[in-house]
């Protein structure tokens, strides 16, 4: 995405946000801190959606908004001014509201799009028997995957099938979304439109065009997994991901089977701190109902509730209050409680 055109939507008037967290979320850094704050900011589905985001660029764009009086910086954190918030709200009313936002996490959106762009071009040129053209320049992995996919599926009816599967996907989204998505594709004599060109044509922010893209790709992945798009599934099926890291998944499974954290640590030769981080990752990423917060926190829940009664102020809660109350608890319990409360509200 070109964040040049709107970054206000990433920030808030009442919640000071760290640029670093947002950048790490886009980049897909799965540290517990990034995941937690990504969750707090409501930006977690963007995890890993723009791996090549240029950090200086984001910083520059923030500075532009600060210079324009739309935001202020305090302690390395960014807050929108009332004007900035107004602009954001106005922007959001025109903006696209994602249909599959929580599903974004389950698809490697960046790589899926790269494969789709190149494969689309290859199919389109093949259809007109053109072998000399400027191939879409992308990474080596994508090129290799698309090449093999093309070899496996080359046939006279390839264009027809590719068309039908895309049509099947796009029939399930709004006309506007389908239109904006198709404009992005590359093919014979059609270089494809850029996000900002589509944004101008449809009078929606660039972030919306990107959100539409992510929705289409997510729906594509869902239909693909359900076996409805054999050709596309063969192209991008491996890019559907379970968002938990392997370590976190193992730990969580063991924990579900009734093992204690200490036992898990011992069995896998992990530090207890690592096991706790795995569980936090699982808590942040899994849906609320799938994580046994109450059972794990036990009687700590009541004490935590008393210590931190005001959930609206959660970003300002201090772990120190626990120690000052004479409780010798690990930070883990504090953070886990925060994750729970965030998910419940």
């Amino acid at each position: 995405m070109n964040v040049t055109h709107s970054i206000l939507w990433l920030f808030d008037q009442h919640q000071a946000r760290r640029i670093r967290v947002i950048e790490n979320t886009f980049a897909g850094k799965k540290t517990v801190s990034t995941l937690f704050w990504g969750l707090r900011y409501g930006l977690l589905p963007l995890l890993g959606s723009q791996k090549n985001l240029n950090r200086h660029q984001l910083e520059r764009e923030v500075q532009t908004e600060i210079d324009a009086g739309h935001a202020i910086r305090t302690n390395q954190q960014i807050l929108l001014t009332p004007t900035g918030q107004q602009l954001k709200t106005a922007g959001l009313t025109e903006a696209y509201h994602p249909q599959f936002y929580s599903g974004w996490l389950n698809v490697d959106l960046g790589r899926t799009m790269q494969r789709l762009l190149l494969a689309g071009q290859v199919v389109s040129e093949y259809r007109v028997h053109q072998s000399r053209y400027f191939p879409y320049e992308t990474d080596f992995e994508t090129m290799g995957q698309v090449k093999q996919w093309f070899r496996r599926n080359k046939s006279d009816s390839l264009g027809q099938k590719f068309y039908q599967e895309l049509e099947r996907v796009l029939n399930g989204v709004s006309v506007q979304t389908a239109d904006d998505f198709v404009r992005q594709l590359i093919g014979h004599d059609q270089p494809g439109e850029t996000l900002s060109q589509i944004s101008q044509a449809s009078k929606m922010p660039v972030a919306s065009i990107l959100a539409e893209r992510f929705d289409v790709l997510t729906r594509m992945a869902q239909l693909g997994s359900a076996g409805e798009l054999p050709l596309i599934q063969d192209l991008v099926g491996d890019l559907v991901r379970f968002p938990l890291s392997r370590g976190a998944m193992t730990t969580f499974n063991q924990f579900q089977r009734g093992r204690t954290l200490g036992e898990i640590a011992q069995q896998y030769g992990l530090k207890i701190g690592t096991v706790r981080e795995h569980l936090l990752e699982a808590a942040i990423i899994l849906p609320l109902a799938q994580f046994p917060y109450a059972a794990l926190l036990g009687s700590r829940t009541d004490q935590l509730r008393q210590l931190y009664p005001d959930e609206a102020q959660m970003d300002d809660w201090q772990f120190q209050d626990i120690m000052e109350a004479g409780l010798d608890w690990d930070f883990f319990w504090f953070r886990l409680y925060q994750v729970w409360r965030t998910k419940e509200t």
Partner: peptide
């Protein structure tokens, strides 16, 4: 979008 898609692949 249908005709655009068709012009790419059909």
């Amino acid at each position: 979008w249908q005709s655009r898609l068709a012009s790419l692949f059909l």
